[in-house]
Amino acid sequence: MDRVESITVTTSEGSPHGPFIPRLPVEVCERIIDHLATGWDIKDTRAKSQHLSTLASCALVCQDWYYLTWYHLHQRMYLRDRKDVLSLSRTLRARPRLREVIQQVVISGASPGECQPIRHLGTFAAMLAGKVPWLSRIVIADAEWTVGSVRLEDIGYLAAFNSIDTLHLSNVTLSNVAQLSHLVSALPRLR
């Protein structure tokens, strides 16, 4: 009863591929992926991108690992232009469960480190208002908010995101204080 059996896999040509290797329990896989996901919380952007790359690679291992990484890979959404916003909107329509996973949205200019116009902030607010119930944090980074690039009426749609309690601005140039005032007043739960 204590013997270990070896299963040989055969291809269509009839050649064996060696012994069958037992699978890791799902709980072990979950712990590995959760451990990799904790690397996102570090400050070093190079190390952070390596963790993201590793998580993305894990998603490609098999269908089980794809679903285990799904939660971690979709908690933070990066929106660099209008196409990203439209793609996210289509994804949320196709996969409604994803709506409950997204906790943070990063809205930035097209190039990291350079201030670029963020016209897509208004598109994001108008198209996704009320569609991401657990969104708690918006980050606006590497952005130039010029007069007329984002309609103030669109910023009003942010009030529908009633779970947002954190707004982080990093390397953002505003044209006037009224833009910041409208943004802050549209998010009543800010801490």
Rank of each mutant, 00 (worst) to 15 (best):
A94I: 00
P112L: 01
Y78V: 14
M77P: 01
L190I: 11
D64P: 02
G18I: 07
A59V: 04
D34R: 07
V106F: 01
P112F: 09
E100K: 13
A141W: 00
P22K: 07
D2C: 03
D41L: 11
M1F: 09
D64C: 09
S163K: 12
S175Q: 14
S175P: 02
P117H: 06
R46I: 15
V85D: 02
V177L: 10
T38C: 12
L174S: 06
T11L: 13
R137L: 12
S111N: 10
M77D: 00
K43H: 13
Y78M: 07
G130T: 05
L68H: 06
T45Y: 03
E153F: 06
A126M: 05
E5S: 09
R82D: 08
L167V: 05
R82Q: 08
K43M: 08
S57G: 06
L79T: 07
A59Q: 10
Q75W: 01
A159C: 01
S57T: 06
T146E: 09
V172M: 04
G148W: 13
R189W: 02
S12W: 02
I33G: 00
V26E: 07
I102E: 03
P19T: 13
D64A: 10
Q63S: 12
E144A: 11
V28L: 15
R99S: 15
Q75M: 15
R46M: 11
H17K: 13
V147G: 00
V177M: 08
L92N: 10
V172Q: 09
P117L: 04
V28Y: 05
W70N: 08
W40R: 15
D142T: 02
V85S: 09
H168Q: 14
I138V: 12
V132Q: 01
V9M: 05
S57P: 00
D44L: 04
Q104S: 10
L68D: 01
S185M: 12
S49M: 15
V139M: 03
L187T: 01
D64K: 12
R99K: 15
H74G: 00
C62G: 10
P96W: 04
T38A: 09
A141K: 15
S181T: 11
Y66S: 09
D84S: 12
Y157H: 14
C29L: 15
Q50C: 13
K83E: 14
A141R: 13
R119P: 00
V139S: 00
L190A: 06
C29P: 00
D81T: 01
R99H: 06
I102M: 03
L24R: 04
Q116G: 14
Q63F: 01
S170A: 12
E114T: 12
D64S: 14
V172W: 07
E5M: 12
L190Q: 05
M1P: 09
S49H: 10
N176K: 05
W70G: 00
T11C: 08
Q179G: 13
V61W: 05
G148D: 15
L60N: 02
L52Q: 15
E30H: 11
T54I: 03
Q179L: 07
L152F: 10
Y71S: 14
E144W: 07
L86E: 12
R3E: 14
K48P: 00
T10S: 04
V172L: 02
D44Q: 06
P112E: 12
T38P: 01
